[in-house]
């Protein structure tokens, strides 16, 4: 049920930012705070589904996004998991493979904070100093491929990115590097996602 809500939120977000972005101005004149695109991702250790909005920064050298991700009880087999993520993606190069169609190898990292009750961002006072490091923060690293399609004269969107990534979490990567018992297939998983340009 909750996944459905997130999808609705995503569509509403898409609709309203689109409305704002169009307004009475040309797209080029849009206010600085209007995102360049809205996005939705499946998996990748930042939620079953995560939705949010992003900016193309420094002349499209960096794609920076704020996302909310959710894992329902049926998947977590425990309480619902809520995650806030800042995702940074770097396009390595762009190659045009057809008219209005480019392919881009991508790499990047995310910073995720769990906003649930089972984790903590600062050590609760009942523990002696330095008993634990905070459990609510995690980082993921990923690499993949993104395909960008420009839509000219489309009322819905100016373009779409579709991407596939392989990624891991900082802790997993550390175990993979330091232990013979932990292999690459143990620590890497896949995620897919879409960006809609406004």
């Amino acid at each position: 049920m909750k996944i459905k809500n997130i999808l609705s939120a995503f569509i509403i977000l898409l609709f309203f930012t689109k409305l704002y972005a169009q307004g009475p101005h040309l797209v080029k004149d849009k206010a600085w705070y209007i995102p360049d695109y809205v996005k939705m991702q499946f998996a990748g250790n930042i939620g079953v589904v995560s939705v949010g909005a992003g900016y193309q920064l420094f002349d499209k050298v960096l794609y920076s996004e704020l996302l909310y991700g959710y894992v329902p009880e049926s998947v977590s087999k425990a309480d619902k998991i809520h995650l806030i993520t800042i995702k940074n993606t770097f396009p390595v190069f762009r190659k045009e493979i057809a008219k209005n169609l480019t392919i881009t190898p991508i790499a990047g990292f995310t910073t995720t904070i769990d906003i649930g009750t089972t984790t903590f961002t600062t050590l609760p006072s009942k523990y002696p100093d330095d008993y634990y490091v905070p459990t609510a923060f995690h980082f993921t690293l990923f690499g993949g491929v993104m395909i960008h399609k420009d839509f000219i004269n489309s009322k819905m969107t100016n373009g779409v990115d579709f991407y596939v990534e392989m990624g891991t979490v900082e802790t997993y990567l550390w175990y993979g590097i330091t232990s013979k018992e932990v292999g690459l297939s143990d620590i890497f998983s896949t995620s897919i996602g879409i960006n809609f340009y406004l």
Partner: peptide
């Protein structure tokens, strides 16, 4: 093509959703 590649990718854990999962 991507979808097919993905399906045949031989990862042990094709998709992972959160480090906090308890799905034993």
């Amino acid at each position: 093509l991507f979808t097919i590649t993905l399906t045949f990718s031989n990862c042990d854990n094709l998709f992972e959703y959160s480090v906090y999962e308890a799905n034993v």
